[in-house]
Design a protein around this nucleic acid. Sequence first.
DNA 1: GATGATCTGTACCGATCGGTACAAAGAGCA
DNA 2: TGCTCTTTGTACCGATCGGTACAGATCATC
Lengths: 184, 184
Amino acid sequence: MTRKPGAREDALPAIAEVFREYGYEGASLALIGARCGLGKGSLYHAFPGGKAEMAQAVLDAIGGWFEERIYAPLRDDPDPRAAIRLMLSETDAYFRSGRRVCLVGAFALTEGRDGFADRIAGYFRDWREALAQALIRAGRPAAEAESLSEDAVLTIQGGLVLARALDDPAVFGRMLGRLEQRLV
Amino acid sequence: MTRKPGAREDALPAIAEVFREYGYEGASLALIGARCGLGKGSLYHAFPGGKAEMAQAVLDAIGGWFEERIYAPLRDDPDPRAAIRLMLSETDAYFRSGRRVCLVGAFALTEGRDGFADRIAGYFRDWREALAQALIRAGRPAAEAESLSEDAVLTIQGGLVLARALDDPAVFGRMLGRLEQRLV
DNA sequence: GATGATCTGTACCGATCGGTACAAAGAGCA
DNA sequence: TGCTCTTTGTACCGATCGGTACAGATCATC
């Protein structure tokens, strides 16, 4: 009888997009409801914890997506170089070649004291560790892999900030190109 | 008779800090007033345009600081390598070695449609251009200078995001170290 | 001290915030 | 068709939002 889990998953992408565009504070429930075509009743039925639960669910969904599509191959793919190239192409696709902003990064800059800090830190920590592992498996010394992976994760975030700030998505593409040279 | 300009300048650092911590939407006038010890009356006397004017004034102040301390030396210092090292040390100091967040970057991720977009874009464009000029004067080919300067500006922003997300300021220091290797 | 302009604290405005209450609507089962 | 439980829209809550009005405090000047 319970369609609840389905409704939750259906609404998540729209909610994520609102958070992405307006930030946590700027994303009002009225806006969220309008964007995913749900009244407050439905919204609070799917997310009894309100706005905070919506944000946590969105962060979890994003974390799950990256874990499955990027981190897991980075750790497990028998060809680590292929996994790294996959990471770059999936990253390019996910962020729409720089036209989309990283919600986790945006939350990191403004929020943090709302119980999101753990998820935010985990997202970046997992990314860095998975990439470091792939680099080591590709034959890099451990110290170099640590440094390179931190640099890569941070560079992607910076690329998103700058592409958005200059309103020039091409920044993101050029950054990915340089990253590929450094990584493979 | 008019102490207005003085009061404005005095309040700006506190206002900037509130915007830095809470973002534009999250920074309420009550919070701003409390933080700089000014009532709404004084606040609106100094900034008749309200919150938006406060934000613009803060962005202008930040832009002016960087112009004077970083961009101008980058363009004019007879020793471009020294100017680049100065940029790195001033950047480290300004962002408190990664403990402070870049307000311009934070605004770039969430806002933009409030008339701040020009100032935000200008801040990064000026930085990139000034650094490219220094690199060219230091003997780099133009194409390489363009690429390196874009990479540097974006890397600094990424370092701030990651340091904040992981709650680990050391990320910022390591990033500056790598940047110095690439630039000089 | 008196005067006139500047500055500031307080009260208040309508709008909107996140969140709750609840009754009507919808869906499965008999 | 009745019955039950889930789902939804709407009205509403107190709190707070950004912003305004304005009276009283403060100050320079004479």
